[in-house]
Amino acid sequence: MRQTFKRSFDELRNIVAMTEHFFADQGVDPSLRNVVDLAIEELFVNMVKYNTESAEDILLELDLQDHGVKVSLTDSDVERFDPRDIGPVDVEAPLADRSPGGLGLYLVLKMVDSIHYEYRDRQSKITFVAYGKRTDV
């Protein structure tokens, strides 16, 4: 399943509708839903917030992979940004040293099972896989 989205937070409701449809249609383990939605939102929001030089829509692709879901987000006409290169986040820091922001990509890296990055011809493609419970063993 593939669909493009405008560079707006208002598109989040349409993205959720897409994942909802995909999970129901493909019979994907529902316990995976929040992890997939969270990772898509964080990556999409990051593209919208920081790739401001692009006016291109963002492509979202969902596929089954074994007993999980493979998700790709492709952003065009942008600079290279590999989310795996983010610096460390100190989640043990006391409240006085914590500030809003900076947790999104950290949570993605923490919660998905694998993540891959490609950059070619000013096109940035992030692919992650999240696996659910096996029902065939």
Partner: peptide, 20 residues
Amino acid sequence: LEYISSAGLGVLLRTHKRLL
């Protein structure tokens, strides 16, 4: 509440710090 992302976490943190 069914779902929260980092944007929601930011709201909670900002509010908690202000109230504290």
